[in-house]
Amino acid sequence: METVILISQVIMGLALVLTFVRVVRGPSLPDRVVALELFSTTVVGLVGVYAIQSGVSSFLDAAIVIALMGFLAAIGFARFLERGGPRDD
């Protein structure tokens, strides 16, 4: 069980590094936002694996909050794009 948890954490850590590279180098704003969504999803996975490893269920509450914040950020960006981007009202 410990080996599986360690392998999961290493793979998700590598995914975080690669996602961060996409956020920094992304060719367009939508690519960067999708990478940020993936980043938050990967963090939720890491927190969930850590909750399993430590046996502390309150970490799952933190994972739920992170997931909700990522979802709301995606909705906000979709609305931003729907309205045509930045405006000078």
Rank of each mutant, 00 (worst) to 15 (best):
M1Y: 14
E2Y: 03
E2M: 08
I5M: 07
L6V: 13
I7K: 07
S8K: 08
S8A: 11
Q9C: 13
Q9G: 11
V10W: 06
G13Y: 15
G13I: 03
L14H: 05
L14C: 13
L18Q: 08
T19R: 03
T19H: 07
F20V: 10
F20K: 02
F20H: 09
R22Y: 05
V23F: 03
V23E: 06
R25G: 03
G26C: 06
S28Q: 03
L29M: 14
V34D: 02
T42A: 01
V44G: 10
G45A: 12
L46R: 00
V47Q: 12
Y50V: 06
A51K: 04
Q53I: 05
Q53L: 09
S54M: 03
V56N: 03
S57Y: 05
S58N: 11
F59S: 09
F59A: 02
L60H: 03
L60Y: 06
D61Y: 12
D61G: 00
A62D: 09
A62C: 14
A63H: 05
V65W: 00
V65E: 04
V65T: 11
A73S: 14
A74M: 12
I75W: 04
G76F: 02
A78V: 05
A78L: 01
L81I: 02
E82D: 12
R83M: 12
G84H: 04
G84C: 09
G85T: 00
G85K: 04
D89G: 15
D89H: 13
